[in-house]
Design a protein around this nucleic acid. Structure first.
Lengths: 206, 206
DNA sequence: TGCTCTTGTGTACAACTGTTCACATCTGTG
DNA sequence: CACAGATGTGAACAGTTGTACACAAGAGCA
């Protein structure tokens, strides 16, 4: 028997998730990944896969959970780093985009999952987006920048904001990571989207 | 591109494209389709595939072209059927959504392709969206509803509109085709998104 | 010490994959 | 008419796939 490096406890599970994410980051589509392919990338024997996941969809679902953590971290980061209220939009957008840059694989997975073939993954991601929108609504209420909007309209506004940002993040993913000029273009354009939306919200009286 | 002006309609070619689209409509993801799978669905022998496409990405690219036709038809439909200017948004959204309902497979393919693994398909779809946005800008200019916006701001506004509608169309795809209530919810919500954007545009003076 | 769980491994197999090749059929043009 | 080219077919290939099975090493516990 050849000596094995080390049989660590429960590390294989994470290796498999990272492997899938790595393949997605390399341009592959999650839906086209196979069990063998992932285990190969993880440096594990195919059979091990079944010790942790029932199938690929299962792995995808667990990735969605991890994605939730990433998003929450991003949100916390934005909340604690936005200093001036008048630069709220610019600074938040900057933070979101840099998170997308630093977690390309996760956000690529998110973008793929939105139209993915697993209904469960799809629903999971949409649920994360709804959560994000409702947290944003809370923040805006707290900052008293939208006092004239009723709850439903505020919720609608935040939903639109989140969708726009999400779409912009997929723009970033289509750009070479070091193409600072293009990334900056997306940043500016996204900020203007949000400004436009907030101008709309400020003048919203039905 | 237009490689078949003279020869008779290669029906196998279209059968293959329809087959791929049918599989996508059935919930499969385009990136996970195989050549054999598509030919089987088309009722054709695997070898025939190579008579018309070099590989799956090639087929995807040609589907993007067809998708362009669908989008153009949708646009023309909206232009000729919107009767009252004050109902422009509601009627347009209604038309877009019913087109999405009647061409579910195409729009599912579009949603998938936006984050797909073929950079070319991705770029093709984004290009269709840009075209759509620029046509919308023309229309708005013609209708004189945005006379105070400069070209760049108008273009930005239209881009945001197109993105929002596109996102909403993916919402529709996640709903059972006959769930009229939910579809109507999406319709109303999308219309409000656009109203919000246009209120923003109307009050946009930097 | 034994017993049972959990995790990881190696082997095996039938089914399926993409692609090639040689051959059949059809269609329009010289 | 014959012939060239486009289109479709079937058999064949080597490689990959998902999954089942039996087994080994360690952990926790009586």
């Amino acid at each position: 028997m050849a000596d094995k490096p080390r049989p660590k406890p429960g590390e294989t599970r994470e290796k498999l998730m990272e492997a899938a994410l790595a393949l997605v980051g390399k341009g592959r589509h999650f839906a086209s990944l196979g069990i063998r392919e992932v285990t190969r990338q993880a440096g594990v024997v195919p059979t091990s896969f079944y010790r942790h996941f029932r199938n690929m969809d299962d792995l995808g679902l667990q990735l969605v959970d991890e994605l939730g953590l990433v998003l929450r971290r991003m949100m916390r980061d934005a909340r604690s780093n936005v200093l001036q209220a008048d630069k709220l939009i610019d600074e938040s957008v900057g933070i979101f985009i840099s998170h997308a840059q630093n977690n390309r694989s996760y956000f690529t997975f998110m973008a793929q999952g939105l139209a993915g073939e697993s209904r469960a993954v799809q629903e999971g991601i949409r649920s994360e987006m709804r959560y994000f929108a409702s947290e944003l609504a809370n923040d805006l209420r707290r900052l008293r920048v939208v006092e004239h909007l009723n709850d439903a309209d505020l919720e609608m506004t935040c939903d639109l904001v989140v969708r726009s940002v999400a779409f912009s993040l997929t723009d970033v993913l289509g750009i070479a990571p070091d193409d600072d000029y293009q990334v900056d273009q997306v940043r500016k354009r996204t900020a203007r989207f949000l400004q436009l939306i907030f101008v709309g919200a400020a003048n919203w009286n039905r």
